[in-house]
Design a binder for these strands. Structure first.
Length: 293
DNA sequence: ATCCAGGTTCGGG
DNA sequence: CCCGAACATGGA
């Protein structure tokens, strides 16, 4: 058992509200103030249970004995998952002059971006989520993970980890079709998988770049356009400037918050967001949160 | 039935 | 550079 200290500014309620939006999420399971998640590290399966206490996240191992190396990796993963190292007060300094952001900071005070620390998973998820509704996207992801991911059972429940690129490359066209992936998406998923098996991409390498360079590098991948690149920069790599302007969720949230008759167009979006420099990612995430009932 | 979903690529004006 | 079509499915 290990513990991770929570920062002063951490909104447990809103964090769980976000986590719970994915009733259809297959990669972790939420109940009460705890989250269970299966990790696969170097072929070893470790089923963890995170309990959110007042000042700590307590991590228990329900299955598998972690080495100190595993512990370190899992601790890092969780710190990234809940973005515990960001200085939120700096973000709020940026929000203050922008009325809707100021209001959202008040409503969701202490909410941190919930990330997808695994780069391969983040890229696949951004491809899966393109141009379809979220519920269908979750269905496709469930199909993929159940088909190729590692799993264990505990208290008669099954827990899955995201499949490795090697395992995804084993999946046939027919199986993908049965899993309701379009042929286009299968192509993109395979291209991304190959980048990983051939070690032509890594999180470390991208994090070494500045935002523009990292975005340009991601967009060179076929299947990763402006939206997906921004999504990964924000949800995985932790860049603060990522702004997926084409995102319909962002547009709908702005329509609501600004009481617009219609979703804002391209010029209007640029105007609205021109004074968001340096905290675009957090602005986007807070706007997404505002879409939850 | 029609339109829209957390888009991207490709070909054509 | 901008525009429309194709891609697959499901919910409103």
């Amino acid at each position: 058992m290990i513990k991770i200290r929570l920062p002063e500014l951490f909104n447990k309620t809103e964090t769980f509200r976000y986590l719970n939006r994915g009733k259809e999420e297959i990669l972790f399971r939420v109940s009460g103030n705890r989250v269970r998640k299966l990790f696969k590290i170097e072929n070893k399966l470790l089923l963890t249970q995170l309990t959110f206490e007042n000042q700590n996240i307590k991590i228990d191992f329900l299955q598998g004995i972690p080495s100190s190396h595993h512990l370190k990796l899992i601790e890092n993963h969780i710190v990234e998952w809940f973005d515990l190292n960001t200085d939120l007060s700096k973000i709020y300094d940026g929000f203050r002059p922008v009325e809707i952001l100021y209001n959202l900071a008040h409503t969701y005070h202490g909410l941190r971006i919930i990330k997808v620390p695994d780069l391969y998973e983040a890229l696949c998820w951004s491809i899966i989520g393109q141009q379809i509704n979220l519920s269908f996207a979750y269905q496709c992801k469930r199909n993929l993970v159940a088909e190729a991911g590692a799993y264990c059972t505990y208290e008669s429940e099954t827990f899955y980890s995201f499949p490795s690129p090697e395992d995804v490359l084993e999946i046939s066209d027919d199986t993908f079709r049965r899993m309701k992936f379009s042929s286009q998406k299968v192509k993109y998923i395979r291209i991304v998988s190959q980048l990983f098996t051939e070690k032509k991409i890594s999180k470390e390498q991208l994090l070494y770049m500045d935002y523009q360079k990292a975005k340009q590098t991601l967009k060179q991948i076929k299947g990763i356009g402006e939206w997906s690149a921004n999504y990964v920069l924000m949800r995985c790599l932790g860049y603060k400037q990522a702004l997926p302007l084409a995102d319909v969720g962002l547009q709908n949230a702005l329509k609501n918050q600004l009481n617009l008759a219609n979703k804002p167009g391209k010029e209007e979006l640029l105007l609205i967001t021109e004074n968001w420099k340096g905290f675009e990612s957090y602005a986007t995430f807070y706007l997404w949160q505002s879409l939850l009932v």
